[in-house]
Nucleic acid binder design. Structure first.
Lengths: 299, 299
DNA sequence: GTTCATGATATGTCCTGGACAAAACGGATT
DNA sequence: AATCCGTTTTGTCCAGGACATATCATGAAC
């Protein structure tokens, strides 16, 4: 396995792999005839584990020492709280996670659909989907889920939400909301949840998907005569870039267009004039009501 | 814009960007206080164009000379043939592109839906969506579309296809097909089209979305008892890695699981035993029939 | 005991410039 | 036309140095 393949599989950059080798002596790949690194499978596996732990908050320096105590640490770190069985939402979340573990796609689909019907869309999103995303993320970090199990879950939720959006009457009222993420941000789930909530409340949403360059966000907002630009930032978004992106966009956009930032990534962002920070889905609904009453008052 | 951002935006690796600068004098980024490259927007734009042309088969060396004759070349290369107005498909594609230019989301949605109803799903996908994707890609490359216009189109098609998949009866028959892409491949449209076609024909599809590490693809295939693993590679996928990925996966997967590779990226891949290359959507349908008759014969 | 400032350490990313293998090309030959 | 072979092009790898930023640790002030 060459360095490119390892980068692809572990998410660690080439530079990082080389500097770790230089500084810490791990990984210690063999070399081929051409002097290029050839990583054995077990080192790649260990690198993958380390990457996961680092994303979870561990320091690389501490991890190099450990041998397989890591595995114990992985599992023990955040043992999933015994489910409060009197809370139906938590119960459903738990049930769903079991279905994911069993790889039972059909049952998963059906269970989600059923819950949606029973609770109604808004409650389903706010009370089930959002906490479940969180739980699945945690489980994945703890190594309780395989990568593909997390992918499967995400894909099913995306499919469900998109189907729901498609079947809703396309909102034609105000405000007109432009939804997207910046180029470094790949996660679209939060955006979809917001799109459902806003559409339910009669706003008209225009989604550009992920990774729209900031410059193009401004152009799109103007072209579509948006009232609001809503961006989502996951926890994985590099915090240092956040402040820059947000102020840059605020400056590009005309003052008449609101800028809403949401997702778990924005909690680290200091308040800023002219930018609305939304750290929970409930706040999205409230912000929409707020926007409307404000506009009603000023007209 | 620093080198990482440019890599992300253009798809050209850091090494490539630096070696181009060294050898050809382009790009010629400014430097910040720390001596690090800062790329101006217009150079990034040009790099993006070059990348597209290279993916299309042009040689880099030839492109550095041109100034704006490129644009002429771009346009002339596949000048969107004056629409043969007697071809209803081409006509519809043309009409759709006009709607995109007008930013009329509602009309776009309606027009696509209508076409789908009229033609039936399979013909809609093969005769309209696939050529239209191509046309939109071309138009974007030619600068006829803004980035956000292309995003909008892609998002609408994704939403439509996902909605369609959700409303189809979930296939429960054979074969069981696992659909995904490898970590460097972000494009999911091709995968969705294939999913629709396969589901229509009664196969049961399990989609993991994009960017599943090869190692996890194997695990998922085993866990879900897949008969076929289908991967999609866009034209932008680095050709170097393609052969490696495909042979690695072929080796990881048990022989009983077929490996199908599709998308415009695979046309550059030499044939390989045990791997099925599909360069058009029609071939997907044929391959499914082939798989079935083969299994029927061997049982 | 808690909070804050400050210096030390850890860590990822960028840099330069050299090297090489694989792919693409361009003729010459069959 | 098709095939072969030397040449050029082109992307990726390598080494080792540098530096900005994040994190930790120490001590002072409340």
């Amino acid at each position: 396995m060459n360095i490119s393949a390892v980068e692809r599989d572990t998410g660690l950059g080439k530079d990082t792999l080389r500097v770790w080798e230089r500084r810490y002596g791990f990984p210690s790949p063999a070399r081929d005839d051409n002097g290029e690194r050839v990583y054995p499978a077990e080192q790649v596996e260990r690198l993958r584990l380390m990457k996961r732990l680092i994303d979870q908050g561990h320091r690389p320096g501490r991890l190099f020492a450990r041998s397989d105590a890591e595995l114990a640490e992985l599992c023990s770190s955040r043992r999933p709280s015994a489910v409060a069985s009197d809370d139906p939402a938590a119960c459903l979340v738990d049930h769903t996670m079991q279905l994911i573990r069993r790889h039972d796609v059909a049952a998963l689909r059906q269970s989600l659909n059923q819950a949606m019907m029973r609770l109604g869309l808004q409650r389903f999103i706010v009370e089930i989907v959002a906490p479940m995303n969180h739980a699945v993320g945690e489980a994945w970090m703890n190594g309780e889920f395989e990568v593909f199990e997390e992918h499967l879950y995400t894909e099913q939720i995306k499919a469900l939400l998109r189907q729901v959006i498609g079947n809703l009457p396309a909102g034609s009222g105000r405000p007109r909301v432009l939804l997207t993420t910046v180029p470094e941000e790949l996660h679209v789930l939060g955006l979809l949840m917001v799109e459902v909530l806003l559409t339910l409340d009669g706003a008209s949403c225009i989604s550009l998907g992920t990774q729209t360059p900031v410059f193009d966000i401004e152009r799109a907002a103007t072209a579509h005569q948006a009232d609001i630009v809503a961006l989502s930032f996951s926890a994985a978004f590099p915090g240092r870039q956040l402040a820059g992106v947000s102020s840059q966009l605020r400056q590009l956009l005309p003052a008449s267009i609101d800028l809403w930032l949401g997702g778990s990534g924005v909690q680290r962002l200091p308040a800023q004039t002219g930018v609305v920070l939304l750290s929970s889905l409930q706040e999205v609904v409230d912000a929409l009501a707020g926007w409307r009453s404000e506009r009603a008052a000023s007209n």
